[in-house]
Simulated assay, not measured.
Amino acid sequence: MDFLLAHEPLIRLAAFASVLGAVAVLEAALPRRRRGFGRWRRWPSNLGIVVLDTIVLRLVFPMAAVGVALALEGRGIGLLPWLGLPAVVAVPVAVVLLDLAIYLQHRVFHAVPLLWRLHRMHHADLDFDVTTGFRFHPGEILLSMAFKLVVVAALGAPAAAVLVFEVLLNAGSMFSHANLQLPGWLDRVLRLVVVTPDMHRVHHSVDRRETDSNFGFNLAIWDRVFGTYRPQPAAGHEGMTIGIEAFRDPAELRLDRMLTQPVRGERR
C-alpha cells in the first residue's frame, strides 16, 4: 500500500490510459449509436481539456485528495476515525460515501444556475463517447476538488480509499459515457450495481426532464434512492438528441469555444 500511495500519479495515469484505450476499442467494435461527428472533430478538444485540467489542478491543489488524506491519517480527524472502524471496513465505507458525495455534488451543479454554467460544457458535447467522460471545464474541476477535499477531511477517509475512489471515478466516468452496445440482459444486470452507458446516456439528452435524471457516475443505487432514476430516453437511444439547446453549432466543439461557454449562451 505504501508503494501504491507513493506512486499515486503514475497509477492514476496508467489506469486512465488503460481504460481509455480499452473502451475506445470496444466502442469502435460495438457502437451503440452512429456518430454525428468523427473522432478527429471532437477528440483533440476533449483530450486537450484533460491536459489543461490536470495542469490547473496540480498548480492549485498540489497535494490533491490523496495527499490530504495522507496528511490527516493517524490524527483521529473525521467521522470514520471517530467511529473506530478497522481499515478493512473503513476503506469500502469511505469509497461508498465519497461516491454519494459526488452524486449530490452533481445534482447541485445542475440546480444552481452559476454552477450549471460551468457544468453545461460537459453536456454541450454533440456526441456521446468515452471522451465525454472527462470533458469538464477547469472551473468545475477546481470546485469539485475543493468539495472533495472537504469531504475527505470530514470523513477522515483513509488514503487508500481515496486512491481507490479516484481510480474508480475516472474509470466509471469513461465507461458510463461509452458509445457501447451492451447486450440487453447484461445492461439490466449491471445497472443493478453500476451505472451503464445506456443508463447514463439518458442524462445527456437535450430534453431537460431527462438531463435532470441519472446523475450517478459509479454506483447506480443513488438515483433509485433519491428518485432521479429514468430507465430509458423517451425517443430511444438511437433517436434521442445529445447535448443542450444553447450550443448546437459544431464550432462549439473547439477547445477555445468550450472554455468560454460559461460566459455565453442562455441562462438555465
Rank of each mutant, 00 (worst) to 15 (best):
A154N: 02
G139C: 07
P113W: 01
G133E: 01
L169G: 12
G78S: 09
P250K: 12
R120I: 06
F247P: 06
G21H: 09
L97M: 03
N179G: 00
G239D: 00
T241S: 07
L259H: 14
P86Q: 08
A24R: 14
L97P: 04
G227T: 09
P44I: 00
H7N: 15
L163H: 14
H110A: 02
F175L: 13
G265K: 13
V108E: 04
V162D: 13
Q105D: 07
V162W: 08
V225K: 08
R201S: 13
V68I: 03
A160W: 12
V167H: 14
T54N: 11
L190S: 10
S45W: 00
D198I: 05
A87C: 07
M63F: 06
V68Q: 01
L115V: 06
H237C: 00
A234G: 10
N170T: 13
P92M: 06
I77Q: 03
I242W: 04
R191I: 08
R41H: 14
L143S: 02
W185L: 11
L5P: 14
A159Y: 09
A161V: 03
R39T: 08
A111P: 01
L163R: 15
H122P: 01
V152H: 03
D125L: 02
I141C: 14
H203E: 10
G243E: 01
V23C: 06
V50L: 15
R209P: 04
D2H: 10
V25S: 11
P62R: 00
L100H: 03
S173K: 03
V130G: 01
L190I: 11
I55N: 10
V194G: 07
L30N: 14
V95E: 05
G36E: 14
V167P: 13
R230G: 13
L79Y: 06
R32N: 03
V202H: 03
V89S: 05
L83I: 05
V88T: 11
Q232Y: 15
G21D: 12
G84S: 12
M174K: 07
W43A: 13
T260I: 15
H122L: 06
V23H: 02
N218L: 12
R267P: 02
V25K: 10
V206H: 07
V189L: 12
L83D: 06
L118R: 02
M199V: 10
A111L: 09
H106D: 00
R208A: 11
A171C: 13
I102C: 04
A157M: 03
L72H: 04
L259N: 15
P86D: 11
T260L: 14
A24T: 15
F217W: 05
S173Y: 04
R248G: 11
V66W: 12
V194Q: 07
R35F: 02
T241E: 13
H204F: 03
F128T: 05
V66A: 13
V150Y: 00
L163N: 14
N46D: 14
D2C: 04
S176R: 07
I55W: 14
R135H: 12
G48H: 04
V150R: 01
A124L: 10
P9L: 05
F215I: 03
G265N: 13
L13D: 05
H137V: 07
L180H: 04
A64L: 12
S213D: 05
D53V: 07
G184C: 08
S18R: 06
V194H: 07
A24K: 11
R248L: 12
A65C: 09
A14S: 11
G243V: 01
L149H: 09
V152C: 01
V23R: 02
V19C: 09
L155E: 03
